[in-house]
Write a protein that binds this DNA or RNA. Structure first.
Ligand code: FES
Ligand code: FES
Lengths: 158, 158
DNA sequence: TTAATTGATATCAATATAGTATCAGTTAGA
DNA sequence: TCTAACTGATACTATATTGATATCAATTAA
């Protein structure tokens, strides 16, 4: 059971990059290279986020993408809903013969309760929160211990 | 985003029927008819549950299936794991370039926390619990209000 | 003996996910 | 003004997962 699909995964990581480089446009190409995501696939993800008002773009040379909202206003729950549809624990689990009265269906009740919990949890996790944690983690690292190329500007190590 | 697939759905409902008719063997056919599930598909689900020791079967005429455990010992989480694999919020979300040190990865940490919450919630929901709720709901219904055929023995109404 | 049943598989269809390709339009800068 | 670096839009392919069907052998109560 996979809760986050590639699209959501890529979306989160792209947003983290945009969040780390706020103020300037970041190209799809640079994101795809740094984060090792398939270029065209990522572009589709970015365009979807434009449509939902999470980011804005600028065309042409030195164009790219930029956050349109505060990182703290972008929650993983919203991303999941955009790329994977509303979190529904189950489509109506019962058939007429079993459950003539939807409103009283106990399974439905139970299932929806969990749905709420899941929603709530994902709501808490925002790009802003993740950025702060990434930052804290990076600061905990005193220095690079080997000569590996470190291209990412989000996390220098770890 | 679909948290419960058909297999899990059918499994839960089949188990509820077995739970409601404890002590006697219930055939795949009767379950599939009463619950409106595709026969052969359901059979596959039942066999999977035998392999996992949740139910037992008896072959031949008047054969069928029966619970092998207490309803309270069968949790929805286990069913999800059987039919949909372990609940994993995301496969390792990061690539080497971003996250050289798995153990310190903050996103991973956040994601795994939610995974635990989800696990815990689903753990709570057992067949036994659902059966009790269904029973309570059935008792709340004073009488059938119309002439509709009521085949299910699990829920008389609602 | 036979019809009702499960055991075990093989196969197919439908849907969702992941990824690729292409071309038109925009823009900074040589 | 030309060009290369960009996004916008969209069509397409490939792969994986989910959902469903079909078949035949073995078992068993009546
Ligand atoms: S009526 Fe749809 S879940 Fe009970
Ligand atoms: S290393 Fe895999 S999630 Fe950070």
């Amino acid at each position: 059971m996979k809760v986050l699909t590639k699209k959501t995964d890529y979306a989160i990581r792209a947003l983290l990059m945009l969040g780390a480089k706020r103020g300037s446009y970041v190209s799809a190409k640079s994101i795809s290279v740094e984060q090792d995501m398939p270029y065209q696939f990522l572009r589709g993800v970015l365009q979807e986020m434009i449509r939902h008002g999470l980011i804005v773009s600028k065309e042409g040379v030195q164009g790219g993408f930029m956050l349109a909202k505060e990182p703290g206003e972008i929650g993983v729950r919203q991303l999941i809903e955009i790329f994977q549809g509303t979190v529904q624990v189950s489509e109506c689990m019962f058939r007429k013969q079993i459950c003539a009265n939807r409103s009283r269906c106990v399974l439905r009740h139970e299932i929806m309760r969990i749905e709420q919990v899941v929603h709530h949890e994902f709501e808490q996790v925002t790009i802003g929160k993740l950025l702060r944690k990434l930052d804290a983690a990076a600061n905990m690292m005193p220095a690079l211990t080997d000569g590996e190329k470190q291209e990412s500007t989000i996390v220098k190590e770890g």
